[in-house]
Design a protein around this nucleic acid. Structure first.
Lengths: 268, 268
DNA sequence: ACGCGATTTTCCGCGATGTGGAAGATTTTT
DNA sequence: AAAAATCTTCCACATCGCGGAAAATCGCGT
C-alpha cells in the first residue's frame, strides 16, 4: 500500500452525494494497486474512512461486481469486469491499443522502460508499459497506477498541452495532494513551462532516486495532449549525448501514435 | 433510449448503500449508450428514479469525472476517462486487444458483422465489433452495450461454460430482467444446453428480426468461457451450407484468441 | 498445533445525508 | 413568439448512511 490519496482531494461544496465521492475514491485507489489487492484497514486509512464505512462501501461495490477479493485472501482489488464498463469510451479513443507497436518498438530499440500515460480527471494514469533488455527496469510502476496530474513527469508534459483553463483547474484541485508526493506547485509549474518551451521534459524521477525520466506529449489533431510517452532509465543512461539521441526516437513514436489516432477518428 | 435496465434487477437485502447501487446502475446504463449521450428524463425513467435524484447523482458523477455532457447538448455519456479506471484489470485479461486481428480477419473473410462479447457481472457486454463488406451490417449493436447475461446468443454460449454455480446464480439474479427482453428462462436454458452439447449456438436474433446469429465461446486454459465470438448476418446468409462452412472459421478464431490469451498469461 | 494480536464483520442508535414534491430556469419544439 | 418539454434549484422530512463499540474471524509467530 502506501499512496495517500486523500478523499479531500477534490474539495467541493459538499452538497451532493458523499458516498459517491467515497466510492469512486476507493475505486481510484484500487485502480492503481497491484493484483494482490489492498487490505481494508489500508483503504480506510488512506481515505480517512472509518472501518465500518469502508467495509460497507466495499461490500456494496462487491455486490455491483466492481470489486472482488483476491483469490484466497480477503484483500480487495478491482474486478476484471470493471474493464468492460469503459469499453465504449475506450473505443472512442483507443490510444493504448494503437500505441502497442510503438511502445514495443521503443522498448526494444532503447532497452529501457517505456510508459504510456493518459490524463484521467485530476490524475495521470500509467496506461501501458513495455520493458527493454537492460537489467534495471522500472518494475515498481504498475499499469493502472495513478498520480495527481502534475506529479509525474509525463503528467507535467500533458498539463502543458491541455489548455490554460484545465491547467488552472487542475493546479487548484490538486494543490493539497502535491504535498503527499513531495513536490510543490512551483516545481510542477516549472516543469509545465519547460515542457511547453521544449516540447519535452527531462527530469530526475521523484519516486525512484537514481532514475531519470524523459517524456514527450502525444497530441491530437487540435494539439491537445491525450497522453504522454516516457522513458525511464538509470540517470547515467539518460544524460548528455544519449539523451539527445533518444529524444527524436520518442518524438517519432509520439507522432506515430498521434497519427494512428487521427486515422481512427476518420473511420469511426 | 429504450432498454429497461430496472435497478431492481439485483434484488438484494437493501441494507448497504442505495446510492452506490443507483450510481452504478446509471454508469452501466450509459456504458451501452452511443456517444450522443442520454437525456436525464430517459435515465431517470429507465431506472425509476425521480428527476432530482437522477440529476444529483449525475452531477456527482460529473464532478468525479465519470460522466460528461456530450459537447453542445446537455446529454450525459460516460467520460473518456472512465476507460482508464479499468486499465489494470484490462491488462490482466486484454482479450479485446488480442482479439483485434482475429475479428478483422473474420469480418474480412465472411463479409458479415463480427462481435466479441465478454461476461461482466450479470451482463454480457459487446466488447468489440468489426464489419465486413456485405451491405447489411448490424450497426445497431454498439460496442459497450449490455444485455442481461443469457439474453444475447453470445451470452448463452458463455453461460454454458462458466460453471454450474455461476449459471444458477445468474439465472436467479437475471430472472426478472429476462422479461424485458422478451425471452424466458426456458429459452435461455435451452440455448445454454445446446451450446454445451454442440460447442456453438445458432439462433435467430431477438432484437433484430431477419438476422441470424452464430456464436462460439472463447475459453481459457481451464475451459471457462472468458468471451464469445459471434457472427450476425441476414438469416438467408447463415443457414445450411454456408453456416457449416463458417463454423470452423469461427472456431479457429476463438482458438487463436484463446491461445493469444494463454501466451499473455505467461509473460505477466 | 495453539494462542494472541490484528483485522474483518456485525450491531445499533443518532443525525447528517440523500430524498422527491413542487416551483423556477432553461432549452427545444410547434 | 408561445407552448411544451426538459433541466435545475429549493427545502422540509425521514431515510439511509454513519461510526463507536463489540463480536467473530483471520493469520502470524512460537
Amino acid at each position: 500500500m502506501g499512496m495517500e490519496t486523500s478523499i479531500e482531494g477534490s474539495r467541493r461544496e459538499a452538497t451532493g452525494t458523499q458516498c459517491i465521492q467515497r466510492s469512486f475514491a476507493i475505486v481510484r485507489l484500487l485502480a492503481g494497486g497491484d493484483c494482490d489487492g489492498e487490505k481494508l484497514v489500508d483503504i480506510a486509512g488512506s481515505l480517512k474512512l472509518s472501518h465500518p464505512t469502508a467495509h460497507r462501501i466495499l461490500k456494496a461495490l462487491e455486490q455491483e461486481g466492481i470489486v472482488e477479493r483476491a483469490s484466497g485472501t480477503q484483500r480487495y482489488r478491482l474486478a476484471a469486469e470493471t474493464a468492460w464498463l469503459g469499453v465504449a469510451p475506450f473505443n472512442r479513443c483507443p490510444i493504448t491499443r494503437l500505441a502497442v507497436p510503438t511502445l514495443e518498438d521503443l522498448a526494444q530499440k532503447t532497452g529501457d522502460s517505456i510508459f504510456l500515460s493518459v490524463p484521467s480527471h485530476n490524475d495521470s494514469v500509467y496506461a501501458d508499459r513495455r520493458f527493454g533488455n537492460f537489467p534495471l527496469q522500472a518494475q515498481r510502476i504498475k499499469v493502472g497506477a495513478r498520480r495527481p496530474l502534475g506529479v509525474s513527469i509525463g503528467g507535467r508534459v500533458m498539463l502543458g498541452f491541455m489548455g490554460e483553463e484545465r491547467l488552472a483547474n487542475t493546479m487548484r484541485q490538486n494543490a493539497e495532494r502535491f504535498a503527499d508526493w513531495h513536490c510543490s506547485d512551483a516545481t510542477v509549474l516549472a516543469g509545465v513551462e519547460a515542457a511547453r518551451a521544449q516540447g519535452y521534459l527531462s527530469e530526475d524521477s521523484l519516486i525512484d532516486p537514481g532514475r531519470h525520466v524523459l517524456a514527450v506529449p502525444v497530441r491530437d489533431v487540435v494539439g491537445r495532449a491525450v497522453g504522454a510517452i516516457s522513458i525511464i532509465a538509470p540517470t547515467a543512461r539518460l544524460k548528455g549525448e544519449r539523451a539527445s539521441r533518444l529524444l527524436p526516437l520518442l518524438r517519432a513514436g509520439a507522432r506515430d501514435v498521434a497519427q494512428a489516432l487521427g486515422r481512427q477518428r476518420m473511420s469511426a
